[in-house]
């Protein structure tokens, strides 16, 4: 038997909104460690890794490891039915082919349950090697979202370059070019508004903007985003999920062949 209870149900809603357009189907793995998921987008260019640690839930019970194959659009439909303040319980019995979502209003005067059919998903689990990154940029997530949105009105790809000057986001398209430079900014009272750049080596990589815009749908989950870059390696765009874990997006670079 598997059961989790999350008082801040809106968190699960936000997680689903962040990944439902990128990934169609995924296996959610439940173990003593927590609730996790790894999946590629249909083009096999991007990879999403989600971890919600068991300690972060108000209640978490997992008698044996299970893997639940779920269509994300359908799970998102169900989670949309939860109120933002609702307490969410997810449970699955051993050997059944469905998972139940229960939503309780904070005052306990409305209780809903939804049963979602599970599916067999034959997905490849990729090993993500530990990497030392050439540059790590931490910046306000809303700023990153704004930059990706603005640049995508000009071009299809973004070149992210980290130098001593800061981090530069550049694009070019039919109408012209755009460059946005963000400098390190630690002298703010509010840490959520800081931009911090750790650079070991200068790095410049090219990525498809439409994926970056898709990742930015995770913005409501965290005030800061961490972008880790190394030459000729996938970028990692990470949103921490308050006290519980993270959602990490990996995107393969465009490379001169």
């Amino acid at each position: 038997m598997f059961e989790l209870r999350l008082e801040q149900g809106s968190l699960l809603k936000k997680v689903m909104e962040a990944i439902k357009d990128l990934v169609n189907d995924a296996n959610f793995d439940c173990s003593a460690t927590g609730f996790s998921m790894q999946a590629m987008d249909s083009s096999h260019v991007a990879l999403v890794a989600l971890l919600l640690r068991s300690e972060g839930f108000e209640h978490y019970r997992c008698d044996r490891n299970i893997s639940m194959g779920i269509n994300l659009a359908n799970m998102a439909k169900i989670l949309k039915c939860a109120g933002n303040d609702d307490i969410v319980t997810v449970k699955a019995d051993d050997g059944t082919d469905s998972v139940t979502f229960m939503f309780e209003s904070p005052t306990q005067d409305k209780i809903s349950d939804f049963e979602l059919k599970l599916m067999d998903i034959d997905s490849e689990h990729l090993g993500i090697p530990e990497a030392e990154y050439d540059a790590i940029v931490r910046m306000p997530s809303a700023e990153f979202a704004r930059i990706c949105k603005d640049l995508s009105s000009i071009g299809d790809t973004v070149v992210i370059s980290v130098t001593k000057e800061g981090v530069k986001f550049s694009t070019r398209g039919d109408i012209g070019t755009a460059n946005i430079v963000c400098r390190q900014n630690t002298s703010v009272d509010k840490p959520e508004e800081a931009t911090i750049i750790e650079m070991k080596e200068m790095v410049s990589l090219t990525f498809a903007l439409r994926y970056m815009n898709s990742f930015a749908k995770a913005t409501p989950l965290a005030s800061q985003v961490t972008i880790s870059l190394s030459s000729d390696l996938p970028v990692v765009v990470e949103y921490k999920i308050a006290e519980m874990g993270y959602i990490r997006f990996y995107l393969a670079p465009k490379i001169e062949e």
Partner: peptide, 14 residues
Amino acid sequence: LKSQTRIARFFRAS
């Protein structure tokens, strides 16, 4: 011209 790579080029099946 740069071409799009796939994730499997960097991360192998585990």
